[in-house]
């Protein structure tokens, strides 16, 4: 996960801060965005290429609501004894339904997300993990998701 820090210059900052949403759905969207940012179209495109190559942006395009494509997701947590932690981590990670898994500082020290094609597979997978590990899997399905205002300010 470690990556060298990228130090954006003033123009990079304008692009990163100004282009996190609202990219136009029109035939020449880069020209429109460039005009808004006070740049030329080709300069904006080459800046974006550079930012992507340098790892300062991971992607440029539409953000999809994962649930809209079908599939089910559930955050889960377990309290894993320290002396078994690595073994249990390997057992949990062996399930392809486990999309990501983090160790966290808390008595509930293992947090992972299940992603399955159908909602009923969440429960089946959680039970299978309980059977494999002998530990409870606490399920934290989302009840409500809030609009996110997250903006990285460069």
């Amino acid at each position: 996960m470690t990556r060298p820090l990228y130090h954006p210059d003033a123009v990079d900052r304008r692009i990163i801060n100004g282009l996190q949403e609202g990219f136009a759905l029109s035939p020449r969207p880069f020209a429109e965005a460039a005009a808004r940012l006070g740049l030329e179209e080709d300069e904006l495109i080459s800046r974006l290429e550079n930012l992507r190559r340098r790892g300062a942006i991971t992607r440029f395009g539409p953000f999809i609501d994962a649930a809209a494509m079908g599939g089910a997701f559930c955050l889960c947590a377990m309290a894993v004894p320290d002396d078994h932690f690595d073994l249990v981590a390997a057992e949990v990670n062996a399930f392809p339904e486990v999309a990501h898994n983090y160790e966290r500082q808390h008595p509930l020290n293992m947090w992972f997300v299940l992603a399955t094609e159908r909602p009923e597979q969440i429960e089946a997978t959680a039970r299978a993990i309980e059977a494999a590990t002998g530990l409870d899997v606490l399920r934290f399905p989302k009840l409500e998701e809030f609009f996110i205002g997250f903006r990285v300010t460069a």
Binding site: L19, Q20, E21, G22, L51, I64, V152
Partner: peptide
Amino acid sequence: GVIRRIGIAPNHYAL
């Protein structure tokens, strides 16, 4: 609402 927004995904670690 299938597409939430269109734009940059900044790598907040790199920044």
